[in-house]
Amino acid sequence: MKKLLMILTVGAAFGFAFMNTNADQDSEGKNLPAVSIKDVEGNAFNTGDLENDGKPMVISFWATWCKPCKLELNTIQEVYQDWQDETGVKLVAVSIDNERTKNMVKPYVNSSGWDYEVLMDVNGDFKRAMGVNNVPHTFLVDKNGKIVYSHSGFVPGDEEILFEHIEELLK
């Protein structure tokens, strides 16, 4: 009985401790996982190094074969300059194109005139670490590098909701 009580006490203690820290954590969001992938030039890139000088950052998973993804990123491109001027936000477009289509990424980015930072997640390592089910999937990261919002899919109009969330971070 005494043993049981002791276990319960210690268990409860650790439970409280974790609950507290978890509560702290929830209020701040989650950290970006550090996974080794590549940039669009083929250089090694650690996703733990993603940052935007204390300003908000959007991480958008996409693929050259995914129409809604391209619609989302082309839609944001039209207003990207305004978004940057107003909030300092940076968008990182993470392509999950595999070996079959990855050579299309750079030409597509060039021909679309995107001003985004582009990363290549050819074997889905970053996608898995971020818990992405399907593309497009967009994450918003605050000035402390914490993920504060994420959205699955894209339909026209969703970009404005993303921008509202970006603006909220500056309040």
Partner: peptide, 15 residues
């Protein structure tokens, strides 16, 4: 116990 546990957890920097 709560104190110790929090201490231990803090050492891992749970944040």
């Amino acid at each position: 116990c709560i104190g110790f546990a929090q201490q231990a957890v803090a050492q891992f920097d749970m944040s």
